[in-house]
């Protein structure tokens, strides 16, 4: 015969157990979330108000970093201009290309797996390798200029020309639209067939199918891609670091590259943290704007 007390504790243990087990299973993520996300997120905010050069103590300097960042440091404005231009050059065009290519790969012709593989491959190489690859493509006496020469145009020295360096990096970015393309392709293949049959019954043609069925159905995938690529492109670093080192002048000085230099070349950890937080706020604002605008063009099932 059990005492009432053990019965009570048994009941509460039985009640608690699933919660404890659940938290135990997710505990690896709780650790990284606390120490590698929440803590650094708050710490970089606090560091923004300090001067800290890696040695000694961080010194509280109030709004000095923020003032410098917003009003005194011209490089910040330069790098923001470069980064926004890069976003505008790559995100809309990249989205359009990935939609077009996905539709193309969704056609019922022979050899699609071969083309899908080839279109996705450059995205896999990624990083420094792909940056170097495009450095050789865009060389003064490289194939791009040779092709232009065939039609009588003398190509610029792409990566060393103030006007052309940033468009060159954008061109390289568009050659890796393969990853986004696969996401849209997966969405295309998920469009229910009966919706197309409904258009057939109404006597609609291919264009009506695309406009009234395909596009609304894949719009959430497109939206997701726009969000993710905007966030990613805002943080670009490797292309400029490897291909142009931010130059010539400041023509390819990405915000990420400038932040990297402040933090890991000049060891201005406080100032770099302020820069990092401003990047966070800009990305947050862009994402909110994206979500607001999405109301007008993204279609979600079950909405009127």
């Amino acid at each position: 015969m059990q005492s009432p007390r053990t019965v009570a504790s048994n009941i509460s243990w039985a009640r608690l157990r699933p919660h404890i087990v659940g938290w135990a299973f997710i505990s690896p993520w709780l650790v990284s979330f606390s120490f590698l996300m929440v803590y650094p997120f708050i710490a970089s905010f606090v560091l923004s108000f300090t001067r800290y050069q890696l040695i000694g103590e961080a010194e509280f300097i109030g709004f000095e970093n923020i003032q410098r960042m917003l009003f005194e440091d011209e490089r910040v404005a330069d790098s923001l201009r470069v980064t926004f231009t890069y976003v505008l050059l790559t995100v809309p065009a990249g989205t359009a290309i990935s939609i077009l290519v996905a539709i193309l790969l969704n056609q019922h012709v022979r050899g699609i797996p071969f083309f899908r593989t080839s279109f996705y491959m450059p995205s896999v190489i990624g990083g420094v390798g792909l940056a170097l690859l495009w450095t050789t493509i865009l060389a003064k006496n490289g194939p791009v200029n040779a092709a232009l020469g065939l039609v009588g145009i003398e190509g610029p020295n792409w990566l060393f020309d103030t006007a052309w360096a940033l468009p060159s990096l954008a061109l390289k970015a568009l050659a890796t639209a393969g990853a986004a393309m696969l996401i849209i392709l997966a969405a295309l293949q998920g469009v229910p067939q009966h919706l197309y049959e409904a258009v057939d019954l109404d006597g609609g043609g291919e264009w009506a199918k695309f406009w009234h069925v395909t596009l609304p159905q894949i719009s959430p995938a497109i939206f997701y891609n726009v969000i993710v690529t905007t966030i990613g492109v805002m943080q670009s670093f490797v292309e400029a670091f490897i291909m142009t080192n931010g130059g010539p002048g400041t023509s390819t000085l990405f915000y990420g590259l400038y932040l990297y230099r402040q933090a890991f070349e000049f060891y201005r950890m406080g100032y770099a943290s302020a820069l990092a937080w401003m990047m966070f706020l800009i990305i947050l604002a862009l994402t909110i704007v994206n979500f607001r605008v999405a109301r007008y063009w993204v279609y979600y099932e079950g909405e009127e």
Binding site: W29, F33, F35, L36, M37, Y39, P40, F41, A43, S44, L47, I227, I231, M234, Q235, G256, L259, A263, F264, M269, A272, S273, A276, W277, M279, F280, I283, T287
Partner: peptide
Amino acid sequence: LLSTMMLPFWVVIIPRFLL
């Protein structure tokens, strides 16, 4: 967890480095 996927890498890199 899903929202942390949107957090920019650069925001957390400096305190992580110091840690």
